[in-house]
Amino acid sequence: MNNIVDLLIIGGGPIGLYANQYALKKELKTRVIEKSAELGGKLKSVYPENPIENLGGVKTWQAGKLIDNMISHTEKYKPDYRLNESVQKIQQKDLVFTVTTDKGKHKSHAVLITTGRGIYLPPSLANLSFEEKEKAGLLTNIKNESALLGKNVVVIGGSHETVGWAIGAANVAGNVLIINWRFIESFASLEGSQAVPPNMDILEPYGLLEVSGDQTVTGIKVYHVETGEEKEVAADVIIMARGYLTNLSDIEKFDVALEKNGIKVDDAMHTSKAGIFAAGDSVYYPGKKRLISTGTNEAARAIESIEKYIQAIWGKNG
């Protein structure tokens, strides 16, 4: 891992994949570090069947197939992907970045962060093991419905699987609320003829922003995906697909300036640290919209800026 690449991309979701393809076309030497076992982020691991409709001039794709196409289009460049590798810290010496992961060290002339939006967990919850998180009320499925008896349950997502979880939880829970980032036409379209329980409701289009609680879950904060409006919701249990839970500390460790739970960037997608750029749902700036089309535009702007940054310091292509 001692060879220096032009650009290290942290995060192998749709924006990281697009940025990598754009950079490779410019003949930059890149490497993508992804903490999961597969590329594609939540589009692949959480809602692969959801339609993606906000890419101008592109027909509607299922999220998972869109990711497959992005990966396929880049194969001719022989991309360098490092999966199951979690970044621990970023350091810089003599204008060279060293990115330390749980598997070793990578060196580069620039860094691009495309990790997606983090969910804030208070330290008392963030530091728990996976099993302890389940006991505290952070679930990735329903193993024991009796544990939900009389509780306020929030289910994140609108896939067939998550709506099924919600209906199952409603059998014993006090109240069940589905929170989904896009509009679901009807429960019937997802669950056939199965009746919607009277103690179940839906909040859309909202995304999960923050989990509150000390040792156990007490509530969440969500944001409207179009207006940015935030609201708080009481909750005893949160059920979500495992890939959805991304702790905000994953971007806090990069030691760049944050604003509104996102990485603060300028028009060139530069962070507060020279040579470190960011794009996609992980960033914040006034007027930010969390759409794939917005993220790909940010990624292209970031790569253009990174190319100029590298050329100014190291000459063409480092």
Rank of each mutant, 00 (worst) to 15 (best):
I113A: 11
F97G: 00
G118R: 00
K78C: 09
E161C: 11
E49V: 13
N54P: 09
N141R: 11
A63I: 05
G168H: 11
S124H: 06
K107W: 07
K107R: 13
K78P: 02
N141D: 07
L95D: 12
I90Y: 04
K103L: 11
G137P: 04
K59Y: 13
K105V: 02
G116T: 01
I119L: 07
G41V: 15
S86Y: 06
G158I: 04
T100R: 01
K78L: 09
A110H: 13
N84P: 08
P123K: 09
Q92P: 03
M70G: 01
K44C: 08
E38Q: 11
K133V: 04
N84A: 12
P122F: 07
I113F: 06
K135A: 08
V46I: 13
I90E: 00
K44D: 11
I67E: 11
L128G: 12
N84D: 15
H73C: 05
P51Y: 15
K78Y: 07
I71V: 14
F97A: 01
E75T: 11
P48K: 07
T98S: 06
T60A: 15
V163M: 11
P123G: 05
S86E: 14
D94G: 04
L125M: 10
K135N: 08
D102S: 06
T74E: 09
V163T: 10
N144P: 01
G164I: 09
K107T: 14
T114Q: 06
S45L: 14
L43I: 01
R82K: 10
I119P: 05
V32F: 03
N127Q: 14
T162M: 15
K151G: 08
V58F: 12
L55C: 05
S45I: 14
V58A: 03
T60Y: 07
G168N: 15
E34A: 03
L128P: 07
E53I: 10
I167S: 03
A110N: 10
K107L: 06
V99P: 01
P51A: 10
T74H: 08
G41R: 10
V46N: 02
E131C: 15
A169M: 10
S45N: 15
T60V: 13
K65D: 15
K59A: 14
V163C: 13
K133I: 09
K65M: 08
Q91D: 15
A126Q: 05
N54G: 06
A136W: 02
L138V: 15
H106Q: 10
L125W: 08
E49P: 07
N50V: 14
N152F: 04
K44R: 14
V32P: 00
L83P: 00
E49Q: 13
V154P: 01
K103E: 09
T100H: 02
N69D: 13
I156P: 00
E34D: 10
A147I: 13
R31N: 14
L55T: 06
G118K: 01
K76S: 12
D94M: 02
Y81K: 02
W165A: 04
L125P: 08
D68H: 12
N141A: 09
I67L: 11
I156R: 00
T115K: 05
K89E: 12
A136C: 02
